[in-house]
Computed example of a mutant assay.
Amino acid sequence: MSIQQTTIKASSLLTVLCLSAALAITSCGKKTETETTQTTTKTETATAPTTGATTAPAAGAGGALSAAEKTQLTPVKTALVMANSAIKSGDIAKAKTQFAKFSSVWPTVEPLVKAKAGANYAAIASGIEMVKTAMGSATPDKAKAAEGLTSTIKAMNAVIDKK
């Protein structure tokens, strides 16, 4: 087995472990996420009526992430970065695999991202759709996939690094 194959397998294993940890954290952190949402909703209620106590704040509310929330988003960002590296190196199969890992975790963290991303949420959602379209065709558009991944990663970094 070559060093490159060993490195790729180790990277894939690390990604799987990170994604598993994120899912475990997500499962364990449901109460905390609910409390955060309820606190945010109460603040929002003071300025504008909402439809219910568990309604997540609208995109645009923004706010800094807690350490636990940053940990929750790390595997998501890692999968995006690995997909971007693969697409730039021309490895479509690996890029699709990494984006599939992202897609499997995204539904669990999207509400958090939407609540915290503010104006960056539109760039994240747009980038994800661009990647899905570019990678979903019979002949994947590497340039569009890379563009979508790059813009999504940039917007995710802005959310994760927000103070």
Results as ranks from 00 to 15, higher is better:
Ala93Arg: 13
Thr55Asn: 00
Asp91Ala: 10
Ala117Cys: 10
Ser20Cys: 15
Ala123Cys: 01
Pro107Asp: 00
Lys30Glu: 15
Thr78Asp: 00
Val109Pro: 07
Thr36Asn: 07
Glu33Tyr: 03
Thr41Tyr: 00
Ala46Arg: 10
Glu44Gln: 13
Leu112Val: 15
Ala67Pro: 00
Gln98Ser: 12
Lys94Cys: 05
Thr34Glu: 11
Ser20Pro: 08
Thr40Lys: 12
Ala59Trp: 00
Leu80Lys: 08
Trp106Tyr: 15
Gly60Asn: 04
Pro57Lys: 10
Ala122Asn: 08
Lys30Ala: 15
Ala83His: 02
Ile92His: 05
Ala64Met: 01
Ala117Trp: 14
Leu65Val: 07
Ser20Lys: 15
Glu33Leu: 12
Thr55His: 13
Pro111Met: 09
Gln72Phe: 02
Gln72Cys: 04
Thr51Ala: 08
Gly29His: 12
Ser103His: 05
Leu73Cys: 02
Gly60Pro: 09
Val109Trp: 12
Ala64Cys: 01
Thr39Ile: 04
Ala95Pro: 01
Asn84Ile: 08
Pro49Ala: 11
Thr74Asn: 04
Met82Val: 02
Lys116Pro: 14
Ala53Met: 06
Leu19Gly: 14
Ala56Cys: 03
Gln72Arg: 10
Leu19Asn: 15
Ala79Trp: 05
Leu23Arg: 11
Ala24Tyr: 09
Pro107Leu: 04
Pro107Gln: 02
Thr34Pro: 00
Ser103Cys: 01
Thr51Ile: 11
Ala48Ser: 15
Gln98Glu: 11
Gln72Val: 09
Gly63Ser: 04
Ala59Ile: 03
Val81Pro: 03
Ser104Leu: 14
Gln38Thr: 00
Pro75Thr: 12
Thr37Gly: 02
Gly62Cys: 14
Val105Ile: 13
Ala119Gly: 13
Asp91Cys: 05
Pro107Trp: 05
Thr45Met: 09
Val105Pro: 04
Ser89Arg: 04
Gly63Phe: 04
Cys18Ile: 01
Ser66Gln: 05
Lys101Ile: 13
Glu69Leu: 06
Trp106Gln: 11
Cys18Gln: 12
Thr45Ala: 07
Glu110Asp: 11
Thr41Glu: 08
Val109Ile: 14
Gln98Phe: 09
Ala46Gln: 14
Leu73Ile: 06
Ala79Asp: 02
Thr40Arg: 15
Ser104Pro: 07
Ala95Asn: 01
Trp106Leu: 08
Ala58Asp: 11
Ala93Val: 14
Ser103Met: 10
Thr37Phe: 01
Thr26Asn: 14
Glu110Cys: 13
Ser20Trp: 10
Phe102Glu: 06
Lys94Arg: 11
Gln38Ile: 08
Lys88Tyr: 05
Ser66Thr: 12
Lys42Gln: 09
Ala83Pro: 09
Thr51Gly: 11
Thr37Leu: 07
Val113Gln: 10
Phe99Pro: 03
Thr43Ala: 09
Pro57Cys: 06
Ala59Ser: 08
Glu44Tyr: 10
Ala22Leu: 12
Thr41Met: 07
Thr39Gln: 03
Ala61Gly: 02
Lys114Gln: 14
Ala56Ser: 14
